[in-house]
Simulated assay, not measured.
Amino acid sequence: MKTNSEVQIRDPYVVPMPEEGKYYLFGSTDANIWGKGTGFDVYVGTDLERWEGPFPVFRPGEDFFSEENFWAPEVYPYGGRYYMFATFRRRSNKLLGTAVLAADSLTGPFQLHSDGPVTPVDWPCLDGTLYVDEAGQPWMVFCHEWTQVLDGEICAVRLSADLREAVGEPVVLFRASEAPWVTRLDAKSTDAGDVFVTDGAFLHRAEDGTLLLLWASFHENRYALGFAVSASGHIEGPWVHEPEALFQADGGHGMLFRTFDGRLMLTIHSPNRTPNERPLFLPVAEQGGRLRLADK
C-alpha cells in the first residue's frame, strides 16, 4: 500500500468504478519518463489517499512503434471495452503522437488498437483526450506541440466510430498565447520566437450544459492549469479563456471526475519536476458554468 506522497506519477487520470467502490489511477509511471519507455501501470484505491499497486497494464512488444517517452494514458469505457489514449515517441521520425490501445479490463493488458498514432504523422503531438459529442461522434482533442509551431495549439479531429483512425483534417481550437494567464516559456524561447506551451487537454460538461476545456501551460515560468469555455457549447468553439489560471503553484495536466459521494474532484501532478511529481486531489465547485477550487 502506498500513500499519495509515495506515488511518483505524472499526468494522473482517474477512472471511478462505483460498483466496485474503487478508483483506478493511471498516469505516466516510468521513473524517468524522459527516457526509455517501460510501459504503464495502474494504482487501485478506495479513498484517493492510499493505493495498492502498481500493477502493470501495458508493456510494449519488440515490434512496438515506440521505445521512449510513454506519456499521459487516459482510459475510457466505450463500446463495451476500455480504450487508452496515450502518447509515444515514434521510432521512425522521432516525433511524438497519440495512439489508441484497448483492453477488456481496466487492469489490462492493453494492446495497440490503432495503426500507430492517430495524430498527423508529420506533426509533433501529445496528450490526446477522447470527447464524444451530442451526436455520438467521437473526437480526439490534442496538443500540436510548440517544438514545431512555437505557439502551441489545442486541436481537435474526428475519429472513426471504432476509434482506430482519424477522419478528416484537424481543426485548431485555439493557441496558447490567446489565454491571458499564459506567459512565454523563457527557458525555450529563442531568436526564432517566443514559446507558448499547450499541454494536457481535458473536456468537461458542466451541470448547466457548459462545455469546458481544461489545459496546462506556464505562468511566469511555473506550470499552471487553466480552462476555457465553448461559447457555442460545441467542440468547435469559439473558445473563451478565463483570465486567471485555476491552479498556478507548479502543477497541472489535470482531469475532473466525481467521487463516490458526488463531489467534483480535480487531479493534477505537482511539482512539475522529475522524480518529485506526485498526484494531488483538489475539490472543485461549479458556479455558473465556471470552475473554482473549493474548500475541502
Rank of each mutant, 00 (worst) to 15 (best):
V15E: 02
W139I: 09
E286V: 04
F40I: 07
D122G: 04
I154E: 01
F88M: 11
N272W: 04
V171A: 13
G209E: 10
L264I: 02
A135T: 14
I33R: 13
E153Y: 04
P279V: 13
G80H: 11
E244I: 00
L48Q: 11
G226Y: 00
E236R: 03
E74H: 12
E165C: 12
D122P: 00
D162Y: 01
Q111A: 14
R278N: 07
H269D: 04
E19Q: 14
V14C: 05
K188V: 14
P73D: 10
V240P: 02
T38E: 15
D47K: 11
L126V: 15
R90V: 07
T29A: 03
T129E: 08
C143Q: 07
G53D: 05
A103C: 08
G97R: 12
D250T: 06
N276P: 03
R164Y: 02
D295E: 15
V141F: 08
E145Y: 05
D208A: 07
A201G: 08
F58T: 06
A231M: 06
H113M: 08
D63Q: 10
T98P: 05
Y23N: 03
V132M: 11
Y82M: 09
E244N: 01
T46E: 15
P60N: 12
A31R: 14
A102E: 10
E244T: 04
G288E: 02
E134L: 06
E62S: 13
A285D: 06
R164G: 10
T259P: 05
H204R: 10
E286Y: 14
R205Q: 13
R184Q: 05
W215I: 04
M140G: 09
E19K: 14
P16F: 09
L214D: 05
G128W: 02
F65M: 06
I235P: 10
Y83W: 06
A285R: 14
D115N: 15
E68T: 14
K296Y: 15
T183C: 09
L264G: 00
G289Q: 08
L256R: 03
P12E: 10
V15K: 02
E244P: 00
N4P: 13
V7T: 02
V197S: 05
N69W: 13
V167R: 02
E19N: 12
F64Q: 13
G168W: 04
A86K: 09
T29K: 03
G37P: 07
L212I: 09
Q137H: 12
A294L: 13
S189D: 10
S177A: 11
A102Q: 11
D162F: 04
E19D: 12
R278G: 07
A135E: 15
S105C: 03
T147S: 15
S230M: 06
W123G: 00
L211E: 01
P12C: 13
V57R: 03
T38D: 15
D104W: 02
A102G: 05
V195A: 08
G193P: 11
K296Q: 15
F88E: 04
S5P: 02
D199Q: 08
C143F: 05
